Simulated scan of single mutants.
Amino acid sequence: MAERSTRDALLEEGALLFAERGISGVTAKELHAAAGARNASALHYHFGGRDGLLGAIITAHVEAVEQRRARLVAAIEAAGEEGDLRAVVRAFAAPMAEDLGTPLGRAHLRLVAQASHPSLAYRRAFQVTEAPAGTQATRWLAAALPDLPEPIRRERLVALRAQLIGLFAFRATLLDARPPAEVVGTDEVFLETLIDLLVAGLRAAPSEEAVAAAAAERRRHKV
């Protein structure tokens, strides 16, 4: 097996340390020690500092997930299933689920949850790096909910993003704690159940109260 470069070692060990101890709980000295870096300025040289390392870790994670998602998006297009809500939701969830199988993948899922401020859910998705598959799937998702008032559709898509990030981080943290297998169940059951819940939430008929609140919001924006 080829020896890791210092840069790769910082990316991998940084993700593991950040996930376990929190982004602010890891020093540059500890990162250098974990990566086996002989040069005390390696972190600054490769990434400009701890924030640069964090950004590089998240970008690498998003790019890897995007590559997996691209295969699912291509399959959806080939089958003409762009309007199949479950297929589209699976295109979001299944590529993330692949990271549950390795310690580094789980660290990435946990780290994304730490770094994702709630306000990001209200911004245009997939801006960290070029992600045409994710952008296309987002368009299909919005188009699959044409009958929802815009304020309700927006909040459901925000909730979808938060649930994906939060529940995958929850699952990754649980697996890293090494609980008994009979307590946790398989990742396959977790994924399929998660997709069930997400699709049901997106398809649910809005209540009278939600419709009234959405109408009031629209009126306020017109004033």
Results as ranks from 00 to 15, higher is better:
Leu164Trp: 09
Asp99Ser: 15
Ala70Val: 10
Glu3Gly: 05
Arg171Met: 03
Ala142Gly: 14
Val184Thr: 12
Ala133Gln: 04
Asp51Thr: 10
Ala9Cys: 08
Glu30Val: 05
Arg153Gly: 09
Arg4Trp: 14
Ser5Thr: 13
Pro103Tyr: 05
Ala93Phe: 02
His117Pro: 04
Gly166Tyr: 06
Gly25Lys: 04
Val128Lys: 09
Gly52Met: 02
Gly48His: 11
Leu148Phe: 00
Glu81Trp: 08
Met1Tyr: 12
Val65Ala: 15
Leu160Glu: 04
Gly49Val: 05
Leu167Gln: 10
Val73Asp: 07
Leu31Ser: 01
Ala56Ser: 14
Ser5His: 00
Ala9Met: 09
Leu157Ala: 13
Ser207Asn: 00
Ala40Trp: 10
Ala143Val: 00
Ala34Gly: 02
Val199Trp: 04
Leu109Thr: 04
His44Tyr: 12
Arg156Ile: 14
Arg38Asp: 11
Val189Thr: 15
Thr138Ala: 13
Leu141Gly: 08
Glu63Trp: 02
Leu17Glu: 06
Glu20Asp: 10
Leu148His: 00
Val223Gly: 15
Ala172Phe: 07
Ala142Met: 13
Leu10Tyr: 01
Gly36Trp: 04
Glu192Cys: 03
Thr129Met: 01
His61Ser: 10
His108Ser: 09
Asp99Met: 11
Gly101Trp: 06
Arg178Ser: 10
Val183Ala: 09
Ala42Asn: 08
Gly55Trp: 03
Val89Trp: 11
Phe92Ser: 09
Glu188Thr: 11
Pro149Lys: 04
Leu141Val: 11
Phe168His: 12
Ala213Trp: 11
Met1Cys: 12
Glu150Cys: 06
Gly49Phe: 13
Glu63Tyr: 00
Ala204Gln: 14
Gly105Ser: 08
Glu20Leu: 05
Ser119Val: 15
Ala107Asn: 02
Arg161Asp: 14
Ala64Gly: 13
Ala125Ser: 15
His117Glu: 11
Leu17Pro: 02
Ala2His: 13
Pro132Glu: 07
Ala214Pro: 00
Ala216Phe: 01
Ile152Val: 13
Leu54Cys: 02
Ala28Asp: 03
Ile76Gly: 06
Ala74Ile: 11
Leu198Ala: 03
Gly14Glu: 00
Thr27Phe: 02
Ala159Phe: 05
Pro206Ser: 07
Gly185Pro: 06
Leu31Ala: 00
Ala28Asn: 03
Gly25Asn: 06
Arg219Glu: 15
Arg106Ile: 07
Glu13Pro: 04
Ala94Asp: 09
Pro149Val: 01
